[in-house]
């Protein structure tokens, strides 16, 4: 029998994100990311849209979009950035020379440098279980190591309001239907990167509006 390769998709329902940041805490520990240097693989952006009393507080979770058409992958000069057969974009830590071309190439601000001070701290905290033993550019992997074991990404598993959801387009599910029926849409599709993170737009704040706000400073600077 031919092996069926999963078509993983990540769906965020903006209606139910309450901005609790559980995803950030879960990811930071699952992936030993340098929270001590204020660097995160996933974040919940907070925006204020409109003026009081009509002002809206918007929570916007974001993470690596695992683009089908992958700017960071093309930008990488050493081949450190590679894609798994499922299309998950990963970084080979040893091959990465830290040139940051990928950081610049990524239109979603999903990459950051895991610097040598961070490696020191990681090893201090996690000892022989440390997963970052050399400086490199780091990014969200959708918890690829968990996926391979049949587990959801850590942020999805813990999301208190189930706003983060995970699924396989090959399998009929609530998640895959949201994507296939067009109820969940990508962020900034005009960039042509074909992201695999899809947002269920909230009643009050269409993704387009969020996208417009996110591209303004200080967003670019904080990532």
């Amino acid at each position: 029998m031919e092996k069926v390769i999963p078509k993983w998709v990540f769906v965020v329902d903006l209606n139910s994100c309450v901005g609790c940041n559980a995803c950030m805490a879960a990811c930071a520990q699952e992936n030993q990311t340098p929270y001590w240097s204020n660097k995160w693989r996933t974040k919940v952006e907070q925006l204020e849209i409109g003026e009081f009393p009509e002002a809206k507080r918007v929570f916007f979770p974001h993470l690596c979009m695992q683009c089908q058409n992958t700017p960071c992958y093309y930008a990488c000069p050493t081949g450190a950035t590679y894609k798994t057969e499922e299309g998950i974009v990963l970084v080979n830590h040893e091959r990465c020379i830290g040139c940051e071309a990928c950081v610049i190439a990524c239109p979603y601000g999903a990459r950051y440098p895991y610097e040598s001070d961070d490696v020191d701290e990681c090893e201090k905290l996690y000892g022989e279980e440390a997963r970052h033993t050399t400086p490199h550019i780091d990014k969200c992997t959708w918890c690829y190591h968990r996926l391979k074991e049949g587990l959801e990404p850590a942020c999805v598993e813990t999301c208190p309001t189930n706003c983060r959801m995970f699924g396989d387009l090959n399998v009929d599910s609530y998640v895959s239907r949201l994507v296939l029926e067009g109820k969940a849409i990508p962020l900034s599709p005009q960039l042509g990167t074909e992201p695999k993170v899809f947002y269920v737009t909230s009643k009050e704040t269409p993704v387009g509006v969020v996208s417009h706000h996110l591209n303004e400073p200080p967003y670019k600077q904080t990532i």
């Binding site: 559980a22 950030m24 805490a25 598993e157 813990t158 999301c159 208190p160």
Partner: peptide
């Protein structure tokens, strides 16, 4: 790491940032 306990009838397997 900490995860929510799926067997628990109150939080049904999820944990917040504090819990994490």
């Amino acid at each position: 790491k900490i995860e929510g306990n799926i067997h628990h009838p109150y939080n049904r397997g999820v944990a917040c940032a504090r819990g994490q």
